[in-house]
Every structure is written in structure tokens, then in C-alpha cells.
Design a protein around this nucleic acid. Structure first.
Lengths: 235, 235
DNA sequence: TAGTGGTCTAGACCACCGT
DNA sequence: CGGTGGTCTAGACCACTAT
């Protein structure tokens, strides 16, 4: 009887046990878990207690429960939740990401300071890059990032994923982002670098990317005839 | 005794009552709600049932609960996480959402069957609506939803939030969505209903909305000069 | 100390799914 | 039909907060 007493609630300990079980027994997504009543009997708990544990596991996305069928190990989201970098998105489509740095300058934050929660006069890097997928220009992207956060980024290789550079060189991992989408018409300058040959509607993506505090602000324009941006969102 | 029986669970009705109460009484963030035991007595419910209602309200960010102190009206989150319905988005901007049903038909699923995980010949409803914010046309939206999931939806009020109809009438709560964004040029038909007076770039949003299984597929076109779609995404 | 929410029990009936 | 999860009851003791 593993649930004598102790300061940790029974439902909480049961959660841990179930998680461990899933790992230890090498259970796969879709595998059925013991029924609520079986957990009751096995651990000498009442049904409401077992249900609290299962409910929380469901809420955490670890299991799914279906009336009349049972509880099952959850299918981990195929396309991982949320944020994907350009590099990840392109690779996911089986194409080869390429990047060309168009502009690189250090300058005062100005109006971007507000988003980045720094002073207007503090310095930021402004980096404009052309992103391609297997040779086809897909997007023009400008990143604004406080210089203090990424000292010496001039020396880094910016022809790949900024995510990777931030993580490997500076230990910064983007965890959250606030992104807005809109549609605009291409400007002559965009048409030139994206090789559009005329005016096209472009998908404009503005995102503020956070670790705990804001890390960088980014504005991108995608030619969306060839490339859609897909995100998974949950409540 | 308002909780005799009925197909809608008591905890769910209690949630509605509490939400209505907060609005009707004009309660402000931080105001204290009645205690769990008071709800029990007032509505003749057991404590676990009352607690389920309060727990869900807490989870939805509507109230906060503190051990030894009580339950309180929550401070509304600045920008809501994740999925927001059109209704929620418009309200969040302080505008009044309005909806006009442009088309309503029942027909075989055809190619949408694949997304919705049903047969091509199974019936779906196809509902096209014009969404406005304080009188200004903002988006045209078409929803494809299996007829079996929403029997009798003809009789429902579709001039408001589909989210709400699904939840209150059918107990379906959208939990997850896969959404893609792109930019397109307006067609003459869109220009007419959106009152654009010419060709404009529009934000095209396609989303597949899940409970556990896919519930409905939706294609919307937003005039994005006046309205940006913002989402919070986390890893 | 009185009142609050947090945990828990040992039952019960229901709706739904598969066989 | 038997088994599953969904809802619900009428109690109980505990930990915490305020007075």
C-alpha cells in the first residue's frame, strides 16, 4: 500500500507513478492505460482521487481519455507546438534552407526600444536577411536585437538559424513569441530581392520573441504563393 | 432548486451562473465570490460538484482561488493565450462584433472529408458569414462542419460566436487548432461583401479546429489594413 | 477561533463504446 | 452486454488565512 500518508497528496504521487510507468514500460502513443477502477484497487484510492490525477495528466497533454473506451498515452503533437524557425519550417517541407545577409548594422534602438524593453538610446543590431528554400527566395526578414544580449555576433555565422546561434553561442532559448499576421502589397525593393517581377500580395509577420524577457523583434515578408506559415495553437 | 435534472451537467450550468453573476453584478477584478460551501447550500449541490465548476473557471482564467482566503474575480489577461475566436478578438479591441449569415447549406463533404476525417459522401454544413467590428466589415469566413456533430444547427443563432454555440448547444469545446496564414488578392466577390472598392491584399487564414478529433475546417479572408491577427505561441 | 480552499472516501447512476 | 469514463452525493479531515 504505497499511499500511507506523507505531505505529498496522493493524486500527485499517482501522477508521477503513471508517468514513470509510461516511460519504464516503453509505452507508445495510443497504448491503453489501466482503467480508473483498476488504479483505485491497485493503490487503495477512491475514484475521485484517481480521476484528479488522470485529469491533470490529460490537461498536461500526457494522456487522452475517451468516454466508453479508456485512457491512452497521448500522441505527441506531430508538428511540435508553436514556434518554428524558418530553418525548421523549410526542413520540415523537405527543402534546403539558405540565407543571405543583406544588411548588418549597429544603431540606437529608437522606437524598437519599447518592444524590447530597453532605452531608445541603447544599441541594437539590425540584421536583414534573405531566406531561401532550395534556391527559391521566400522571405525577407529583419531582426532587431539588443547589442548587449549578443556581444560579438558580428563574428557569428548568420547564414543559418538565428535560433541556433542564440542557443549555442549565448545560451538563449526562445520559449514564447507574440506574432501578428497581416497581408500587404510588395514594394519595389521587396520585388527585387524576392525576384517577383511585379506587385504581389505578401504575408507580413511581426513577432516579438521571448525567453523570459523580450529577446528580439522581427519583421518578415513572405511570398505566400509558394509558402504558407502554419502554427499549432492550443487553449 | 434550479438543479433538478436536464442533459446539461450541473457543474456546467453553475459555471454559466457564476459568469453571469460576475457580469450582472458588475463585479471587478479582486472582488470576492461566495464560498464553495455557500454555493453548495444555495443550489443544493455537493461540494465536489461546486469545486469542479470553480476549478474550471480558475483554469479558464476567470477566477483565482486562494487557500484560506477565498475565490476572487481574476484580473483579465492582457492578451489572451492561444486561440481566440473572432468574437473574442474583436471584443478584446474594445469593438462590438457583429455577424451576418451569407450562406447556409447542407451538402456532401467532398474534398473536405479528408480534413474532417469523414467520408466524402457524409454530409456537412457549409456556412459563410460576414464578420464585422462595430459596423465595419472585417472578414468573410466559411465553416465546414460534419452534420452529424451538430444536429439541428439550423435552429441555432449563428449571428454570434460559433465557439459559444458549439460549447453551449453541443458540449464541444475547441481545444487545439492548426492554422495557416497566407496573403492573397481580393476577388470581386470579396470586394463586394467587404466593401473594399478595389483590389486589396487580404490575409487568408485556414484552420482546422480540434476537440480530440477534428471538429470543423474554416477558411477566412481578413482585410488586414484594419485588423491584424495576433497569436501567442509557446514552445 | 472561525472560515476558507485542498484533499479524500465509498459509494451511486449515467452515457457511451465495443463485442 | 460488460467495461469505460462522466457526473454527483454527503460526508470527512487537513492546511492555511484572517481576526
Amino acid at each position: 500500500m504505497p499511499f500511507k500518508k506523507g505531505p505529498i497528496p496522493a493524486y500527485f504521487r499517482l501522477k508521477q507513478i503513471i508517468i514513470d510507468d509510461i516511460k519504464k514500460k516503453g509505452m507508445n502513443p495510443g497504448d491503453m492505460l489501466p482503467s480508473e477502477r483498476e488504479y483505485c484497487e491497485r493503490f487503495g484510492l477512491s475514484r475521485m482521487t484517481v480521476r484528479q490525477a488522470l485529469k491533470e495528466l490529460e490537461h498536461e497533454g500526457i494522456i487522452v481519455r475517451e468516454r466508453g473506451r479508456g485512457s491512452f498515452v497521448a500522441i505527441p503533437p506531430i508538428e511540435q507546438e508553436g514556434i518554428m524557425s524558418f530553418t525548421e519550417m523549410v526542413r520540415a517541407k523537405g527543402l534546403e534552407p539558405e540565407t543571405e545577409v543583406l544588411e548588418f548594422q549597429k544603431r540606437p534602438a529608437g522606437p524598437w526600444g519599447e518592444f524590447l524593453e530597453i532605452g531608445e538610446k541603447e544599441e541594437i543590431y539590425e540584421i536583414t536577411r534573405l531566406r531561401k528554400a532550395s534556391g527559391v527566395p521566400i522571405a525577407v526578414e529583419t531582426v532587431f536585437i539588443p547589442a548587449l544580449l549578443v556581444p560579438g555576433i558580428e563574428a557569428a555565422d548568420l547564414s543559418g538559424s538565428l535560433f541556433t546561434v542564440l542557443q549555442e553561442r549565448y545560451g538563449i532559448e526562445i520559449k514564447r513569441s507574440k506574432t501578428s499576421f497581416s497581408a500587404v502589397l510588395s514594394t519595389p525593393e521587396m520585388e527585387k530581392v524576392l525576384m517577383l517581377g511585379g506587385t504581389w500580395p505578401l504575408l507580413r509577420v511581426e513577432s516579438l520573441n521571448f525567453y523570459t524577457k523580450p529577446i528580439y523583434y522581427e519583421i518578415s515578408h513572405y511570398r505566400s504563393d509558394q509558402f504558407k506559415i502554419t502554427v499549432n495553437i492550443s487553449r
